[in-house]
Structures are given as C-alpha cells and as structure tokens.
C-alpha cells in the first residue's frame, strides 16, 4: 500500500491563493484528489475533518454512495478543477463546443444558442484564435496548450468558490502562462474564489500565491506566506529547492545544484523525517522520529528537528 499522503493539514480562505509545491511524487495531486473525492479505485482516504464552505465533506464519514453523490454535485457546481493533463478532463470524441456548452447550459440554464455565444466569448477570453472555427473541432486538433486553455474556460464558466489547479500551466509557454495566471488571479479577486495551486514552478507560485506549502514525501514540511517561504526558508528541503532553480541572469557555465538522491518510496515511508536520506544536515534523531512542528509566526510553520530548541542551542 502506497502511503501517498500522511497527516496533512491546511486551510484556504476565500479570495486567497495557496500554493502547494513539492517533489514529483510527493503527494500533491493525491492530497487534492482525496479532498475532492476523486481517488482511483485502489485509493483510500481517511481524514479527521475536511470542511468546505461550512459543509463537512470528510471522506469515510458517510457511506460511499452518499459521499460520491455529494462530491459529484460539489465538483459540478462550486468547485472547479484544472488538471495536469487536460485529456483526463476532455472527451476525445466530443467536439470542443459541445464540451463547453454542456456545463454552461447545466449551470446557467440558458438556451443552446446563448450557451454557444458564451462559449465563444470564453474561448476568446482564454486566448484561443478564431473561436468560431475552433469550436467545431475535436481535442486532437488542438495543441497541448490550447487543450489546457479549454479546460480553464470550462472552469471559468461557473465562477466557482474553490478552484483546484493541478500544474495548470505546465504545458504552456510563458506568455500564455502569464495570461492564464492572470485569469486565475482574476477569479480570486473578482469572484472571491479560493485557489489551491499545485505547481513545481517556484516562479509561478511566487507570482500567484499569498501562502505556500512545501510538500515532501507525503507531508507538508513547511508552510508560510510567500515572503516567509522565499526569504526566510527554514527547512533544508525548501532551502535546497530555492538553490537549484536556474536563474536566467546567472552565467550558465555554473552547473545547477540539484538535491542529490530521489524521494522516498511511499510504499515504505520512512519512520522519521521524509527528507532524512537526502538531507545534508540530518542528525540521529531524524531517522527515528518524525520532526515536531515549530511555529515562527501565525502563518509560518516548519517540521524539522534542526529547529528544535535542543538542536538550536547546541
């Protein structure tokens, strides 16, 4: 059994963007899929509590059928998801137009022709060229980036309370990425949506997010405001991450400094700190016991034994 996510807690407020950054395979997607009830058939989520907009949506609290029905409704109406891979969302054998107008008709109760007009406007808003022509095409006729913008257009149709974006701009080039980030930022300020942005791109998160959670090996190892995480990083993993970003202003002959090693196998998660095998500052205790959380401010917390009073005073 893969323990993809273990003991993770966080909150997001209306009109706020929380960034979730972390190693590939650290459990960012699985965290979100547990919350929104979209785990694969072989997945089990348990949680003490998941509350969305005042409603208890903790998995395992009610029977499977009731839970899935409720989550289906929430996902259709007040939550929007933008996935890493647009084709998990788009139907390959349906025209783009149909995939856009169906949700618009369902949620806004407008006529077919009104829905089509709105769909065209949305396509224009996310920067699809010649929407009138494109609306009758199939997903395979779109480039990767254009498919992703269709998924975002579908999400935008509903002014949702919560937007969960899983690497939404990974396949996009920077001018379109900037545009998409501005679209998501607009959802935040205009519709007061809460945003959870999963990304491995520190630049994207720095631009969009008010608070940032750093995940590693299925755990949140550090969480804080954007400035706390970037300028006062406490966790050795966060610090390493910040050190291996290519800075375009640097001279390139300087090799990158990747964090050596690979993430832990979550089939057998380490007993102590998940980062222990790659950490250059690890101590004996790190192997045996999960680090306690140290609080630096109302917003800034970090789980690392180096911050324990005994290690600090040493």
């Amino acid at each position: 059994m893969v323990k993809a996510v273990r003991d993770v807690s966080f909150h997001v407020d209306q009109g706020e963007a929380l960034g979730i950054v972390g190693e590939s395979g650290s459990g960012k997607s699985q965290t979100m899929y547990s919350i929104i009830g979209l785990l694969a058939d072989n997945g089990i989520a348990t949680a003490d509590k998941v509350v969305f907009d005042g409603q208890d949506i903790t998995p395992g609290k009610t029977d499977k059928q009731t839970y899935e029905k409720k989550m289906g409704e929430l996902r259709g109406n007040t939550m929007a998801m933008i996935f890493q891979d647009p084709m998990t969302f788009l139907n390959p054998i349906l025209k783009i137009g149909k995939q856009l107008t169906e949700p618009i008709k369902n949620h806004m109760h407008v006529s077919e022709s009104e829905a089509r007009t709105r769909a065209l406007r949305l396509m224009e808003q996310v920067g699809i060229p010649s929407p009138e022509k494109r609306i009758d095409q199939y997903p395979f006729e779109f480039s990767g980036g254009m498919r992703q913008r269709i998924v975002i257009a579908i999400a935008l149709a509903n002014a949702p309370k919560l937007v969960i974006a899983d690497e939404p701009t990974t396949a996009l080039d920077v001018t379109i990425q900037a545009q998409v980030l501005e679209l998501i930022d607009e959802l935040k300020t205009n519709s007061n949506s809460a945003i959870i942005m999963i990304s491995h791109d520190l630049g994207v998160v720095a631009k969009l997010c008010d608070r940032i959670a750093i995940m590693y090996g299925g755990k949140i190892v550090e969480i804080g405001t954007d400035r706390e995480v970037f300028y006062e990083a406490k966790h050795p993993y966060t610090q390493g991450l910040l050190n291996c970003v290519a800075n375009p202003e640097d001279d390139e002959d300087k090799p990158l400094e990747p964090i050596a090693g690979s993430p832990p196998d979550l089939l057998n998660p380490p007993k102590g700190c998940p980062f222990v095998d790659r950490c250059t500052k690890a101590m004996r205790i790190c192997k045996d016991r999960a680090p306690e959380v140290t609080t630096f401010s109302d917003t800034h917390q970090c789980a690392c034994w180096l911050l324990h009073s005994k290690a600090v005073t040493k």
Partner: peptide, 29 residues
C-alpha cells in the same frame, strides 16, 4: 517572451511588468 518569465522571487514576480501582447492571436489556419 522574456518579459513574461516568472521569476522565483515573490517581490519581483508580483511587481514585474509584463509586455502585454494586445491584438488578435492569429490562427495558423
């Protein structure tokens, strides 16, 4: 393109002005 690079530094990223490309995005068709 260069002006749109997201810089991994929140103060710079949130204040950096991007050259906004107006006009119609053309279609390759």
């Amino acid at each position: 393109l260069l002006s749109a690079i997201p810089i991994p530094d929140p103060d710079i990223a949130k204040s950096k002005a991007r050259i906004v490309l107006g006009g119609e995005i053309p279609s390759p068709i």
